[in-house]
Computed example of a mutant assay.
Amino acid sequence: MPELIPPTTTLHTAFRDCRTDWGPGTHEDGFGITTTDDPDTPAGFTTWIHRITTRPHSTPRWIVEDGHLLGAITLQHRLNEQTGHIGYGIRPSARGHGLATWALAQTLTLAHTTGLDRVLLLCASGNTASARTIERNGGTLAGDNGHMKRYWITLGNGGAPQPASTSPIN
């Protein structure tokens, strides 16, 4: 069973395996890697983990199962119109099993406990898998400029919307 955990330096090898699965030159959504980070070396990895885990108003989580890093999801406690409140990504070999839907549902509950009553999520207009993930968790399309879709999820009535499943499909 997967779990959401804070990023940790103990998973450097698992992170490198996950990054290899993504392939060179691609952006791993949800991990918070910038062009100035060097997560491939032990020292750079430690520095990066420290940066993302001490950022104010942000809660990063890694999706881990049996020591394997399957993806990441990050909650921004304050609205950023360019990135939304929540960003996530699942490594290519782990996609199609409901992990993103499950992780988003868990993160919506966390968002509600931090005092948010609604969250903005963005996804590329052509990313139908991400759009379905957001819609399964109660996302309402607020706009599509042909490049990016904007969804709002309302977290009222004492908690996050109930997803179709409380655990990923295996």
Rank of each mutant, 00 (worst) to 15 (best):
P60D: 03
G115N: 04
A131H: 03
I49V: 13
Y88P: 00
A103F: 06
D66N: 12
T59H: 09
T74L: 06
I86R: 02
R91N: 09
W48D: 01
D40G: 05
G96S: 03
A124S: 12
Q76S: 15
H112C: 04
A129W: 14
S93P: 04
L116K: 02
E81G: 14
G84C: 15
G67C: 13
I90Y: 00
T54Q: 04
I73S: 04
T74A: 02
G98L: 05
A72H: 06
S125W: 09
I63H: 00
T41K: 13
P56Y: 10
I63R: 00
F45Q: 09
G67L: 11
A103V: 04
H57E: 13
H85W: 09
T101D: 03
H68T: 06
A72L: 06
L110G: 02
I86K: 01
T113I: 10
Q76E: 15
L70H: 07
I49L: 12
R78Y: 13
R78Q: 13
A100M: 12
G89C: 04
S93E: 05
G67S: 10
P92K: 05
R61F: 10
A103C: 03
Q106G: 11
A72E: 07
R91I: 13
I90P: 00
C123M: 08
T53Q: 10
Q76L: 15
T83K: 15
D66W: 11
T128G: 12
F45S: 09
S93Y: 03
G87C: 07
P60E: 03
T114I: 03
T41Q: 11
A43E: 14
H50N: 14
P60K: 00
H97M: 05
A103H: 07
H77P: 05
Q106F: 06
A94D: 00
T74P: 00
R78N: 13
L121H: 05
I52A: 01
G115W: 12
A111N: 02
G98V: 15
L116Y: 04
L120A: 12
N80Y: 15
N127T: 14
C123T: 13
R118F: 12
H85C: 13
E65V: 03
C123S: 12
W48I: 08
A94G: 01
D40Q: 10
R95T: 04
